[in-house]
């Protein structure tokens, strides 16, 4: 079964066709990479898939539900149940510790559970950094906190927009290893990247150009 289906999805800003007539699907458990030059519509697509924006036209089926015409608050509910988000700039809350940053996602989702949040940090190898504030962590560590936060509510689909864009090679390797493990455990993952090496490890790569899907490459 497909976790995600886009049918003729477009996002038009005035005269800019940020995304145009995109049609594709992602199978459950699949790892998809999205590549394309700057301004080609990658983030636009992620925002629509992640229930943070609505398409101008076309249909989006997420986990079997049509989300193309939902209200902002309905999207909020679906987003917190089904989507785990990882950002290039990490977006940790500066005044909360690593552990608390993970718990914030629990808080907005349902109930905080310190023990579980600690386990999530342990999964990304950061249990000994739980009490540290973001500024006391390296970029790679911050990104791993961000991943732990994205995973804490067992999302159906993990979306990562250039998760390694701000990391050096060593940290990039660590993050990719985490993704590999998640993939192995059966998670569905969509990663936007400029880095061919990051795209290579995905099952499939979609290329965007001027808002259109120009090419789909099967990596294995």
């Amino acid at each position: 079964m497909d976790i995600l289906k886009l049918a003729n999805v477009s996002k038009i800003y005035g005269s800019v066709k940020a995304l145009y007539e995109a049609t594709m699907s992602v199978a459950e458990g699949e790892w998809l990479a999205i590549m394309g030059p700057s301004g080609s519509g990658k983030t636009t697509m992620m925002n629509i898939i992640g229930c943070m924006d609505r398409p101008t036209s076309g249909n989006v089926l997420l986990d079997g539900m049509d989300i193309s015409n939902l209200s902002a608050s309905e999207l909020t509910h679906i987003r917190r149940d089904k989507i785990g988000l990882i950002f290039q700039q990490f977006h940790l809350i500066s005044y909360l510790t690593a552990l608390e940053n993970v718990m914030v996602a629990q808080y907005y989702h349902s109930m905080t559970d310190e023990h579980e949040a600690m386990q999530a940090l342990a999964r990304v190898g950061l249990e000994d950094r739980a009490k540290h504030l973001p500024r006391q962590l390296s970029g790679g560590e911050q990104q791993r906190v961000c991943i732990a936060r994205a995973l804490i509510n067992y999302p159906k689909l993990i979306l990562a927009d250039e998760p390694t864009g701000n990391l050096d090679e060593a940290n990039e390797g660590i993050v990719i290893d985490v993704f590999k493990r998640l993939h192995g455990e059966g998670s569905s993952i969509i990663v936007v990247t400029h880095d061919p090496e990051v795209a290579e490890v995905a099952d499939r790569t979609i290329f965007l150009e001027h808002g259109r899907i120009s090419k789909i490459v099967l990596n294995r």
Binding site: S73, H77, D81
Partner: peptide, 16 residues
């Protein structure tokens, strides 16, 4: 604004 956006992305509603 970023923090607010993030909290919303994590599922906070307007009331929260």
């Amino acid at each position: 604004r970023r923090e607010i956006g993030l909290k919303k992305a994590l599922g906070a509603d307007n009331g929260g």
